[in-house]
Computed example of a mutant assay.
Amino acid sequence: MRLLLPLGCLLLVLASPARADDEYDACVGDAGAVMPDMGACGAEWIDREDARLNEAWQALLAELPEDSHPKLRDEQRAWLAYRDASCLFYLDAVEYGQVGRYLSYPSCRAFVIAQRTAALDEIRKSVAPI
């Protein structure tokens, strides 16, 4: 039962919506109401989340023994397929229009990447030497 509480707390953290970073907020403010400019802000946010993910990935690989790398790479490939398939419903112009394409999709994608980064960080912490 003691394991369930920390695991439950972790799941709550991972399920929390991603908060846009300050750079995204400033960029959107500067974009005014120009949707393509807001979309560019979202793309930059996704790029920053990808950079954080890559840092977490490299840090985790550095902590793991070589023989664990293939299984982790398989897991990451499966997650990449999930990432690539996620959030696409926001690109449906009929349902979500420009708001979906330029605001909701980048926010959703950044959130998915941030979740994976947090998961990789937790794995690294669990295998790091004490």
Results as ranks from 00 to 15, higher is better:
1 M>V: 09
1 M>W: 06
1 M>K: 08
2 R>V: 13
3 L>G: 05
3 L>I: 05
5 L>A: 13
5 L>M: 10
7 L>H: 07
8 G>F: 11
9 C>R: 15
9 C>W: 12
10 L>F: 12
10 L>A: 14
10 L>E: 00
12 L>N: 09
12 L>T: 10
13 V>N: 05
13 V>M: 09
16 S>F: 08
16 S>E: 07
17 P>H: 13
17 P>L: 11
17 P>Y: 07
19 R>W: 08
19 R>H: 10
20 A>N: 01
22 D>T: 13
23 E>N: 13
23 E>M: 11
24 Y>I: 01
24 Y>H: 14
25 D>H: 02
25 D>A: 15
26 A>E: 03
27 C>R: 09
30 D>H: 07
32 G>R: 11
33 A>E: 07
34 V>N: 11
34 V>L: 12
34 V>W: 11
35 M>Q: 10
35 M>N: 10
36 P>N: 09
36 P>Q: 08
38 M>V: 14
38 M>K: 13
38 M>F: 02
39 G>H: 07
40 A>E: 08
41 C>D: 06
42 G>F: 01
43 A>W: 03
43 A>L: 09
44 E>S: 14
44 E>G: 14
44 E>N: 11
44 E>A: 15
44 E>D: 09
45 W>N: 01
46 I>L: 04
48 R>N: 01
49 E>D: 05
50 D>W: 01
50 D>H: 03
51 A>D: 08
52 R>H: 11
52 R>I: 01
53 L>V: 04
53 L>Y: 07
54 N>G: 06
54 N>K: 14
55 E>S: 14
55 E>W: 02
56 A>R: 00
58 Q>P: 06
59 A>E: 10
60 L>D: 01
61 L>G: 05
61 L>M: 15
62 A>W: 03
63 E>M: 03
63 E>R: 12
65 P>Q: 08
66 E>A: 14
66 E>G: 06
68 S>R: 11
70 P>Y: 01
70 P>L: 03
71 K>L: 12
72 L>W: 04
73 R>Q: 12
74 D>C: 11
77 R>P: 03
78 A>S: 13
79 W>E: 00
80 L>Q: 13
81 A>I: 10
83 R>E: 08
83 R>P: 02
84 D>Q: 07
84 D>A: 09
85 A>P: 05
86 S>G: 14
86 S>L: 07
88 L>G: 12
89 F>S: 10
89 F>C: 02
90 Y>L: 04
90 Y>H: 13
92 D>V: 11
93 A>L: 07
93 A>V: 10
94 V>N: 13
95 E>L: 14
95 E>D: 10
96 Y>H: 15
96 Y>Q: 11
97 G>K: 15
98 Q>W: 12
98 Q>A: 15
99 V>K: 10
100 G>P: 10
100 G>D: 04
100 G>L: 08
101 R>Q: 15
102 Y>G: 06
102 Y>N: 13
102 Y>R: 12
103 L>T: 08
104 S>R: 11
106 P>Y: 04
107 S>G: 12
108 C>T: 02
108 C>S: 04
108 C>L: 03
109 R>F: 05
111 F>R: 01
111 F>T: 01
113 I>T: 04
113 I>S: 00
114 A>V: 00
115 Q>V: 03
117 T>R: 02
118 A>M: 10
118 A>G: 05
120 L>M: 02
121 D>T: 15
122 E>R: 15
123 I>L: 15
125 K>W: 00
127 V>P: 00
128 A>H: 12
129 P>W: 08
129 P>L: 13
130 I>A: 15
130 I>Q: 13
